[in-house]
């Protein structure tokens, strides 16, 4: 790579300054403020600010509901990531085949990514809704089981997982398609000559060669499902029934913005922040070693 040399010493700093300022103002400052606020019991209007040390965290970890929320978050994130990536890889392999009208298929498959999570939620709401949804209506002919996710936690969870997978699908697919096209056909042809069938070729060659893409998408999907799915939960289940779909990011919002328990909510954001930092660090530390570039 060619090294760019600036004649003016300050120009490079000036050029990165906007990015640095944006990061500081919109990421570091709020993050720092959350950490500070998490040590206080704060009144909504700001007239009371009582230092309580780690009491907010104590309250948080003593609450079974928070533990359930953490479990729900991990179940949700892993399902979205693993099922989502598996499906995307499957469809990308199919879309990579040389068939007529390929460009059209590919474009159509990318569409869902252009939709905001809240809208994706509403679309699936119309499919799943117990009284006006298509799916419960069709299922009522097949089984007498009531798929009322207003009362059944696992149905509600499945619904938001499906919606999140669908929403991320186009994005994952695009990366896998690009990854597949980067694989040299000569390698695959050589394997065919050696007598490897399509499944063997996939697991022995394609999957390992795609591992950088998978790794990147895994991290991205985990963070997406941890943070970006707030709109989805908010528009579809509002965390219910009971607290079956109260994933951590939704709880933090609800306790802060609806419940106005600011310190308590800040403590939750700090925990969330720690979880994501840890997750990303772990992935880069361990998963990256197994990745072949």
């Amino acid at each position: 790579m060619k090294r760019t040399v600036f004649r003016n010493r300050w120009l490079p700093y000036a050029l990165v300054a906007p990015q640095v300022v944006i990061t500081l103002v919109f990421f570091f400052w709020p993050a720092f403020d959350s950490v500070r606020l998490s040590l206080y019991r704060a009144s909504p209007f700001g007239d009371r600010l009582i230092y309580v040390g780690l009491a907010n965290f104590q309250r948080l970890f003593a609450d079974d509901a928070y533990l359930r929320s953490a479990v729900a978050s991990f179940v949700f994130s892993f399902c979205v990531t693993i099922v989502g990536l598996a499906l995307a890889l499957l469809l990308a392999s199919l879309a990579n085949a040389k068939i007529r009208g390929l460009a059209v298929y590919r474009s159509l498959l990318l569409w869902p990514y252009g939709i905001a999570p809240a809208i994706a939620g509403i679309i699936w709401l119309f499919v799943f809704h117990p009284s006006y949804g298509v799916l419960p209506y069709v299922l009522s002919f097949v089984t007498a089981y009531q798929f009322n996710w207003f009362l059944k936690g696992w149905v509600a969870m499945t619904l938001i997982i499906v919606a999140a997978i669908w929403k991320q699908f186009g994005y994952n697919l695009a990366f896998y398609l690009a990854g597949l096209q980067a694989i040299e056909t000569s390698v695959l042809e050589a394997a065919s000559v050696d007598g490897a069938g399509p499944i063997r070729r996939f697991f022995a060659i394609v999957f390992p060669l795609l591992s950088p893409v998978t790794f990147f998408l895994f991290t991205l999907n985990m963070t997406f499902s941890f943070f970006d799915t707030f709109g989805l939960v908010h528009s579809v289940t509002q965390g219910g029934p009971g607290d079956a779909t109260s994933i951590m990011v939704y709880r933090a919002w609800k306790d802060g913005f609806e419940g106005l328990q600011l310190g308590y909510s800040a403590a939750q954001s700090v925990v969330l922040m720690a979880v994501v930092i840890l997750l990303t660090a772990l992935q880069f530390r361990y998963a990256e070693k197994k990745v072949t570039y």
Binding site: F150, L151, G153, G240, P241, G242, E258, G259
Partner: peptide, 21 residues
């Protein structure tokens, strides 16, 4: 105080009871 959160706590449990949990 914090009535919104209290109402939430109640409705959460109403759902658990209606759902037979």
């Amino acid at each position: 105080g914090n009535f919104v959160s209290v109402r939430d706590a109640i409705e959460e449990q109403m759902e658990n009871v209606f759902g037979g949990k």
